[in-house]
């Protein structure tokens, strides 16, 4: 289980990323943030986000219409 949860379901670009960026600030380094989203574009967005910010995308899965991302706060 991730340490914190962000529900971004129903929101689309750029809001899930924007909220995740904010939420990640409150996650201590080494711990994880779980994000739930429904925007199909968010899959590519979270890959790009983690790549560009140097955090680790531990998990990117889809169940029904909900995408689930687990991000480890690296820096």
């Amino acid at each position: 289980m991730a340490n914190q949860l962000l529900d971004a379901k129903g929101l689309n670009c750029p809001l899930p990323i924007l909220k995740a960026k904010k939420a990640l600030k409150d996650v201590p380094v080494g711990e994880t943030l779980e994000v739930l989203a429904t925007d199909p574009g968010s899959v590519a967005d979270f890959e790009a986000f983690c790549r560009a910010t140097g955090n680790e995308l531990v998990e990117s899965t889809q169940q029904e219409n909900v995408y689930r991302f687990v991000i480890k706060h690296v820096r």
Binding site: C13, G41, A48
Partner: peptide
């Protein structure tokens, strides 16, 4: 391809990704 002019700007501002 997820080409997006708004996304282009938000990628730059929010994550410093210019692709």
């Amino acid at each position: 391809t997820n080409f997006c002019t708004m996304g282009a700007i938000s990628d730059l501002v929010l994550m410093g990704d210019g692709r």
